[in-house]
């Protein structure tokens, strides 16, 4: 396993490097487009290797009329509340399923699992009707609020984590006079903290680039999150102008960078939270 022949080694590195270049190429092109001048953008004479370095583009998108600052702010609000809701509620519900005994619990748990099988399409139209009747159209509420009902998937995974915590800890705390919420807050949360971070990361990733929900619910440019705003920028044809592709790609990059950061800083949490519950391969 530790020794590799010359040819073997050569093939491996060649494969990995060529593949890396292929996968990186579109990303490089994106950066190159983002750094292009308006003239290049209007004439569509982009180059693969950046030739121009218009870093001012990154400032301009915040100062121009299509206000990226506004989009960014909307995105942050959306993601912030989605994460809070999802982490808090999912873990509480998971705790209840993992630890508390109640009549009907099994049935409810089966219901919970069964929602994983329901395709989102089925509830799309009625949810839209419901939210619009509530007057939530053109607000972020239809996208944020469902997170405060917890996600079946997150609940399921967190429950797995909690069941692995020795029950003796709970019992000891109970003797110390903690109620169930106290046990959750003082005992469970610290112990599943990495898993909570992972849930937060998943929720962030899921909502940061969200497009479909905002597309349906948000009308006003002022209220759009970044992903929709960037798309709008590419779709709006001012008279006689090609969409400012360089600025569109700036938007695409701004949309991507937080995702990369989250990957770098969150990787260890996500690895730990490896999706089958941490025990892959050998049972």
């Amino acid at each position: 396993m530790n020794r590799m022949g010359m040819i073997d080694r050569g093939v491996t590195y060649l494969f990995l490097t060529v593949l890396g270049l292929l996968l990186a190429a579109p990303f490089v092109y994106m950066i190159s487009m983002a750094l292009s001048s308006d003239a290049t953008s209007a004439q569509l004479t982009f180059t693969f290797i950046p030739r121009e370095f218009e870093f001012g583009n990154f400032v301009r998108v915040f100062t121009s009329r299509l206000n990226f600052g506004r989009f960014l702010w909307n995105s942050l609000i959306l993601v912030f509340f989605a994460v809070i809701g999802q982490v808090f509620v999912s873990s509480l519900v998971a705790y209840a399923f993992a630890r508390l005994r109640a009549p009907g619990k099994e049935v409810i748990f089966i219901l919970l699992l069964s929602t994983l099988m329901i395709p989102a399409e089925v509830t799309l139209i009625p949810q839209f009707v419901l939210f619009s009747k509530l007057g939530w159209v053109n607000t972020l509420l239809p996208i944020i609020v469902p997170n405060f009902f917890g996600g079946a998937y997150n609940i399921f995974l967190l429950r797995q984590f909690i069941t692995r915590i020795p029950v003796e800890l709970d019992e000891a705390a109970q003797i110390d006079g903690l109620n169930y919420f106290g046990i959750y807050a003082r005992i469970i949360v610290p112990l599943i903290f990495p898993a909570l971070v992972a849930v937060a990361i998943f929720t962030f990733v899921w909502n940061w680039g969200a497009f479909f929900g905002p597309l349906i619910y948000i009308n006003d440019v002022e209220k759009m999150p970044l992903a929709l705003g960037v798309q709008i920028l590419s779709a709006t044809n001012s008279a006689g102008q090609i969409p400012p592709w360089n600025l569109v790609m700036v938007g695409a990059l701004i949309l991507t960078v937080p995702m990369i950061l989250v990957y770098f800083f969150g990787q260890r949490f996500m690895d730990q939270f490896s999706l089958t519950g941490g025990s892959v391969g050998v049972k």
Binding site: P26, F27, Y29, M30, F211, A227, W245, L255, M259
Partner: peptide, 22 residues
Amino acid sequence: YRTLYYIPATVPAVASALLFKW
């Protein structure tokens, strides 16, 4: 290498769709 391969997966669908259109 892993990191290099993972970066494209972090690009949100909107961004990659706009890019790939090109």
